[in-house]
Amino acid sequence: MEIPFTVSERPDTGLTNPKFGIWLFLASEVMLFGSLFSSYIILRTGSLDWPVQSDELNITIGAVNTAILIASSLTMVLSWTALKEKQFKRFKLFIGLTILFAVLFLVLKIWLEYIPKIHHGHILSTNTFFAMYYLMTGLHALHILGGVVVMIFFWGPGSKMWQTNPDQFVNRIEVVGLYWHFVDLVWIFLFPTLYLL
């Protein structure tokens, strides 16, 4: 069965189904991460012994990772405009760069942050701050990982759709892009909340 309105807009919503669907999904994601931010505020304001976060975490790595995610958002949107311009090779280049940035983010996060901290005995059960730190950044990292898997698919085998149904392929990349920018947006708030305040 073919999914309707993947390219043309639905008359009642004025949107294609994938775009409507991704925005509803992102709305639910806002509430998911919002609940974690809410929990963080409650736990921090209720705690008498909250560590100085900037002493516990490496601000430089956090800032570099922020820059990497911003750069990945830029390459993601440039990959979409490349498709709109019907420049398939440029699309491949930019989405490839996005994947590289995303993998670099995860490598820095795991090898330069998680592993050294675990070696120093800073784990989930160390204190409430580290519990929230691992929970919030871990959930975010899982979102990055999910995005990488999807982008690798569209960089590789999924890109064959460009030959058969280019309009639908452009829409798919737009939807992936919306998800990816949201992941970037979450980190924009996570970074100052966990590393700087």
Partner: peptide
Amino acid sequence: EKKLILVILFFTVIFLFALIFLPFSDTM
């Protein structure tokens, strides 16, 4: 973007603020 998406996001932001600031106002 289309108005429908902005309406969805408007309500999302309302609920997000409620989620964050209602408990926050109590813990303060």
